[in-house]
Design a protein around this nucleic acid. Structure first.
Length: 320
DNA sequence: CATACCTTCCGCCACT
DNA sequence: GGAGTGGCGGAAGGTA
């Protein structure tokens, strides 16, 4: 598997190095039969100076990168405007694309793929601050603003910065299965393999903003009353809005549906208790508003991709 | 496992 | 006419 990472000159280097290390770790774990052949491609000669000032020497430049590529990842340019008017990168991607079976992007790298018409008619994501712009400037792209990464056919796009690591893990999982992906995550002491559908926002962060709208109060109230009945109807009544309007406004403002927010809040709380306490699952479930341990388990598996016990076990093992 | 619920979410439309 | 609101009903998906 020949993986090339295209690194625009002002990218956050984490977007390049994160995925690179994931593939490299996968190689290490594959032992005598490493699979990933990694190349970093720069737009110009000389070292790439990342947004932080750190410099990285690329393996090739687009002028001499006519090697076969199985997977192309495009890291995000910090200055999207500049990248979009610079024809060299985009035309290079456009020219190479027909021979590349799988391509992806991190953060604003999606703009480069979109400009090369690789995302037309496909579902894709990008950093949440750029989602609206992507959708405005490239109406043919079906932008999903609140995922860590999205996979549609050959196109794998991911959200901001560190989600590139999640994306790379998903690619490793596709190539070599879940076991290896988990082993890489563990090797890199990434807490867990995060599912692509996970929200880009932390529940806590979302509810912390200073000026509180109805919706934000509902979120804050949710976090303080996890064990209560938090059905959408109850929340709507609490906010003094109709069910229909509450759902609609909540969705528009929080970019997540009410029920999903509630579930995310409950799972977040349960995660913390699993990490920080030795309380039995029954207690944690009750405290976090899950009717039964079984329901908590199901919700966990659905959203975190692991059972509560397994989650606790894994956290403990990181501290050994 | 099949089944019959129940809740959530969303398009559609009407009202202010 | 446009923005905000809310009722209705059906599809999806979770629950018992």
């Amino acid at each position: 598997m020949r993986v090339a990472i295209l690194a625009p000159s002002d990218t956050l280097l984490l977007e390049v190095v994160g995925p690179y290390d994931v593939f490299a770790s996968a190689n290490e774990l594959l032992g005598s039969r490493p699979d990933y052949e990694l190349t970093v491609i720069a737009p110009d000669r000389g070292p790439i100076t990342g947004a932080c000032g750190l410099r990285l020497v690329a393996d090739r430049t687009i002028a001499d990168a006519d090697v076969p590529i199985d997977t192309l990842l495009v890291a995000g340019p910090r200055d999207v405007d500049k990248a979009l008017v610079d024809p060299s990168l985009i035309s290079w991607v456009e020219r190479r694309a027909p021979a590349i079976p799988r391509y992806g992007s991190v953060c604003t790298g999606a703009f480069i793929l979109a400009a090369a018409n690789l995302l037309d008619g496909r579902r894709a994501t990008t950093h949440w601050q750029y989602a609206e712009r992507l959708s405005r400037e490239f109406p043919a792209v079906k932008v999903e603003p609140d995922c860590l990464f999205v996979h549609d056919g050959p196109a794998w796009t991911s959200a901001g910065v560190t989600s590139g690591i999640d994306l790379a893990l998903a690619l490793v999982e596709e190539d070599h299965g879940r076991e290896l992906a988990l082993a890489v995550a563990r090797q890199l002491v990434l807490f867990l393999k995060r599912p692509g559908s996970q929200s880009q926002y932390s529940v806590q962060l979302a509810a912390q903003s200073a000026r509180k709208s109805n919706i934000e109060s509902a979120q804050a109230w949710t976090l303080d009353h996890l064990a209560s009945d938090l059905s959408t109807g109850k929340l709507a009544a609490h906010a003094g809005m109709s069910l229909r309007n509450f759902s609609r406004v909540f969705q528009a403002e929080a970019r997540i549906t009410p029920a999903r927010f509630v579930e995310a809040a409950r799972i977040d709380a349960a995660r913390r208790m699993l990490e920080e306490t030795a309380l039995p699952l029954k207690k944690i479930a009750t405290y976090c508003g899950f009717v039964t341990v079984g329901r908590m388990r199901q919700a966990f598996i659905r959203r975190v991709d692991t059972s509560p016990l397994d989650y606790r076990r894994r956290v403990r093992s990181l501290h050994e």
